[in-house]
C-alpha cells in the first residue's frame, strides 16, 4: 500500500526512510501469505477451463478494489512453485489470440485452500476484538475444525477432518 503512494507531504512519516522501510517490509511479509490464499481462491472459480496469469491479476485487482496488488514478478514464480508442489496444474492453450498457460486447482490444492481459508478466517475472527473490527464468518455454510481450523462445508458428508483427522461427523450433525 505504501509503495503505491506517489506524492506526500515532506514532513509526513513516510518521508522518513526508516519508517518507510519498516512499514514496507511489514506489508510485504503480511501480503506474502495472503496473496497465496487469494490467488488460490480466484483459481477455485475456474475449475474447468482454468485461468491465466494476467487474467488472474486483473480479477484480483478488481475484486479487491486495487488494494491487493500482486506484482507480476511475484505472481508467476508463485504459480510455478505451487504447480511444482502439486497444488495447481497447468495447460498451454490458445483460447483468445495468444497461446497462454492456464492454471487449474488440483484436488490437493482444494484441500490445502480449505485449510488455509479456515485458518485465515479463524485467525481474523480471533484478532478482531484487538483490532477493533468485526468479522462475520459464514458459520451457516461452513464449520471450522476445532482442532486445526480447516474449513469444512456443512452440506458434505464428512466423518473426519481431512487435514488433522479429528472426528467431526457429530459436530456437523449438531450444527445441521
Amino acid at each position: 500500500m505504501l509503495k503505491k503512494v506517489k506524492s506526500f507531504h515532506p514532513e509526513a512519516l513516510i518521508g522518513n526512510d526508516h519508517f518507510r522501510t519498516y512499514v514496507e517490509s511489514f506489508e510485504s511479509e503480511l501480503l506474502r501469505g495472503i496473496s497465496t490464499v487469494t490467488v488460490l481462491q480466484i483459481l477455485k472459480r475456474y475449475p474447468d477451463e482454468g485461468i491465466y496469469g494476467y487474467q488472474l491479476l486483473k480479477e484480483l485487482e478488481q475484486e479487491t478494489n486495487n488494494v491487493l496488488i500482486i506484482e507480476e514478478g511475484t505472481l508467476y514464480p508463485l504459480l510455478r512453485k505451487m504447480e511444482k508442489g502439486g497444488v495447481l496444474k497447468s495447460e498451454k492453450k490458445e483460447l483468445t489470440g495468444r497461446p497462454r498457460r492456464y492454471y487449474i486447482l488440483t484436488d490437493a490444492g482444494h484441500k490445502l485452500l480449505n485449510h488455509m481459508t479456515g485458518f485465515f478466517a479463524k485467525l481474523l475472527e480471533a484478532i478482531s476484538p484487538l483490532m477493533e473490527f468485526g468479522i462475520d464468518l459464514p458459520e451457516d455454510e461452513f464449520m471450522y475444525c476445532p482442532n486445526c481450523a480447516n474449513q469444512i462445508k456443512l452440506d458434505v458428508d464428512a466423518k473426519y477432518c481431512e487435514v488433522c483427522g479429528i472426528f467431526v461427523e457429530e459436530l456437523i450433525s449438531q450444527r445441521a
Partner: peptide, 27 residues
C-alpha cells in the same frame, strides 16, 4: 486430544474407513 492409535495416510489419499466408528481414530 485423543489417545487412540495413529494411522499414517499420505496427504493426497485421505481415504479412511475405520471399522468401528465410535473409536474415533485420529490420523
Amino acid at each position: 486430544i485423543h489417545e487412540e492409535k495413529y494411522e499414517t495416510v499420505p496427504l493426497t489419499k485421505p481415504v479412511i474407513e475405520p471399522q468401528v466408528v465410535k473409536e474415533r481414530p485420529v490420523r
